[in-house]
Design a protein around this nucleic acid. Structure first.
Length: 185
DNA sequence: GCAGTGATCATA
DNA sequence: ATGATCACTGCC
């Protein structure tokens, strides 16, 4: 039986207690792990993220102050922030940075699921995870994965935040370009 | 290109 | 109580 690889440990709190753009970058290649009711684990490699930086970031929900919906963003890092968008799609975020700073990273793509609403639909994630820790105890967490070389990472403006003025243009979306990854097999 | 969908929030 | 908004998706 092989040793349990270090990468199967959940990412530690210190990983999340950093600025959201650093966390968003470093989550590329990480594995999103979900535990099924029967105890089985499924893992999905994260390939697309977006950073929401804090109260000064006009695209960030926290920029309008604390509300019942976004209160989790103001809390400690490493918790899930899940909310419903357009009445149909759950958005999965992980809170980052210092307590009191409303920052988070949106997971927009993982495994075979392309798009934030498809990730949550595919993994069965909904409001029940809002406010819970990204930890084994909650059945949904993140593990370190293979590092993604910088040349395989693209940065673009975030999707769907045109209302945010100059903040809509900031390159806070991070995407892995699979064609630029080292050859696998 | 745009309709669907409903919780959330500001306004009253 | 009401209306606008919305970090999207799927089908035209």
């Amino acid at each position: 039986m092989p040793d349990m690889p270090r990468s199967s440990q959940p990412l530690a709190a210190a990983f999340y207690e950093r600025p959201a753009d650093r966390v968003a970058r470093d989550l590329l290649g990480a594995r999103l792990v979900v535990r099924a009711p029967d105890g089985g684990l499924s893992r999905y490699v994260v390939f697309e993220t977006e950073a929401y930086l804090g109260a000064h970031d006009l695209a960030c929900h926290g920029s309008k102050g604390m509300t019942k919906r976004n209160a989790v963003m103001f809390g400690p890092a490493g918790r899930w922030y899940v909310y419903l968008c357009y009445g149909m799609h759950w958005m999965l975020n992980v809170v980052t940075g210092a307590e009191g700073v409303p920052a988070a990273v949106l997971i927009r793509g993982a495994g075979e699921f392309v798009g934030p609403g498809r990730v949550t639909r595919g993994l069965g994630i909904d409001k029940a995870f809002d406010g819970r820790a990204a930890a084994r105890t909650t059945g949904l967490w993140l593990e370190a994965g293979e590092p993604i070389p910088p040349r395989a990472i693209s940065r673009t403006p975030r999707i769907g935040v045109g209302y945010a003025g100059a903040w809509a243009e900031k390159p806070l979306r991070f995407v892995v370009d699979p064609a630029k990854l080292p050859t696998m097999i």
